[in-house]
């Protein structure tokens, strides 16, 4: 099961996509409060957003994006029932993907 939540809504020819991902988004600059050691960097580096199989947007991120990232974008077109797919890849090479369909 994927931890990505996506909503895609089409209105007046524009589709708005909102999504939430589950990720710790560690910058690598933070120290563990007990051991005092640096917590290794662990963050999403790339999010690829596709609609009907075509890339609409590619986001590149640093650890400066908040924990459990939120992302919203808009694109022209998109019809009810079209698939929207979100795939992220983090700096450790882990990846997760989820798909939804556009509602109106």
């Amino acid at each position: 099961m994927s931890d990505i939540k996506i909503r895609a809504k089409s209105k007046n020819g524009v589709t708005t996509v909102k999504c939430l991902m589950s990720h710790p988004m560690e910058t690598g600059l933070r120290k563990d409060s007990k051991s005092g050691e640096l917590i290794p960097a662990h963050f999403i580096q790339e999010v690829v957003c596709k609609a009907k199989g075509e890339v609409v947007m590619t986001a590149s991120w640093s650890g400066g994006v908040s924990k459990n990232p939120y992302l919203s974008f808009k694109f022209a077109g998109g019809a009810e029932g079209d698939p929207v797919e979100i795939t992220w890849t983090d700096n450790r090479g882990q990846t997760q993907s989820a798909t939804t369909t556009i509602s109106s």
Binding site: V14, T27, L29, A51, E54, V55, V56, M57, T58, A59, S60, W61, S62, G63, G64, V65, S66, P69, Y70, L71, S72, F73, K74, F75, A76, G77
Partner: peptide, 24 residues
């Protein structure tokens, strides 16, 4: 921020000039 660049969004031809997220 220690590293100022937070996010860069590459937009495809259909994408609207819009991006929203939450930052530290």
């Amino acid at each position: 921020n220690q590293t100022p660049l937070i996010a860069a969004f590459e937009l495809g031809p259909n994408a609207m000039p819009f991006a929203s997220t939450r930052i530290k």
